[in-house]
């Protein structure tokens, strides 16, 4: 199978663009067009039984002005963002030692340990969320354990059907997503760099903060972006594990508009707002990532 360069430079260029053509076409058809369609829809008016094709800003106005106090949709969005931020931080805090441990403390079978951290993804999302009911419930595993040890006398019911259980479940679900890029980032740190730092008399702690952390940060930020964005759009964990006033997040409100509220334009507007927010998150995180990777010692 020997292929000689039998094409003229022009044809080669053309062929090379052929490489990205399917990708661009696919993204255009199944990402750009649908989202542009969503954007257009968000400016239509919702009439009785059907959408009226008249331009209006009322869907956006409604989002930002309707309701009072915490039940304003925009406040629900902020509440969702708050929960997602907590999820992100917790996932990072849990992932970091695992990634560090596998990279620097495990000598043999690194890959195996790495896979062990990813394997929980193979158990159904729903079932993992469900397990937390058994673990965190009033008569659940955690409460039974606490009462057995005498730490508490009465079961604590705030573990389940509250923001606590929603956060715990999401942290569990999104931790592998944070771990993966973090692990990869650490894996690529040249070992001799760490040695060099130590040889230069930098202590363990200084090496950690001056070399290891900055070099891992891009991975941390990528992973953090995943956790933040994915938990923003998660409507299942809140509805499965949230309590009376904690089960409705922004994605649940969006979902409702495509159901009995039957207000697709408003649902579309909420979709557009989430889209813009996630785009902002990606851009800001990307900036930070670039900022930190410039600081990388030893590069060039």
């Amino acid at each position: 199978m020997k292929i000689k360069s039998k094409y003229s430079p022009g044809t080669r260029k053309f062929l090379q663009y052929g490489l990205i053509l399917p990708l661009v076409l696919w993204l255009f058809m199944f990402l750009i067009v649908p989202y542009v369609n969503l954007l257009i829809n968000s400016f239509w008016k919702n009439g009785a039984f059907k959408v009226e094709h008249t331009f209006t800003l009322e869907n956006y106005i409604k989002f930002f002005t309707s309701g009072t106090g915490t039940n304003r949709p925009v406040m629900v969005l902020l509440d969702t963002l708050r929960i997602s931020a907590i999820v992100m931080v917790c996932s990072i805090l849990i992932s970091f030692p695992i990634a560090y441990f596998i990279n620097f403390k495990v000598k043999k079978n690194k890959q195996l340990f790495y896979m062990l951290a990813i394997i929980p993804l193979w158990v159904s999302y729903i079932m993992r969320a469900y397990s937390w009911r058994i673990i965190l419930g009033t008569n659940g595993i955690l409460n039974s354990f606490f009462m057995w040890t005498g730490l508490t006398k009465e079961p604590i019911d705030a573990f389940l059907y509250s923001d606590v259980s929603v956060i715990i479940a999401m942290v569990h679900i999104y931790t592998p997503f944070v771990l993966m890029p973090m692990y990869t980032a650490m894996e690529q740190i040249p070992r001799n760099l760490l040695e060099a730092s130590k040889d230069l008399g930098c202590g363990r702690i200084r090496t950690f903060f001056k070399v290891l952390l900055p070099l891992t940060l891009p991975g941390v930020l990528t992973g953090g972006t995943y956790a933040l964005a994915l938990s923003m759009g998660d409507f299942l964990a809140p509805s499965l594990l949230g309590g009376a006033s904690t089960s409705t997040k922004i994605a649940n409100i969006a979902q409702l508009q495509f159901g009995t509220s039957n207000n697709w334009p408003y649902g579309a507007a909420i979709g557009v707002i989430i889209f813009v927010l996630i785009l902002l998150i990606i851009l800001v995180m990307g900036r930070l990532e670039k900022h930190f990777s410039k600081l990388e010692p030893g590069k060039e």
Partner: peptide, 16 residues
Amino acid sequence: KREAYNEVWTAVKTTK
């Protein structure tokens, strides 16, 4: 007025 009913119901669930 299902949408209005839904909004009341959503407001109930998001008031803390």
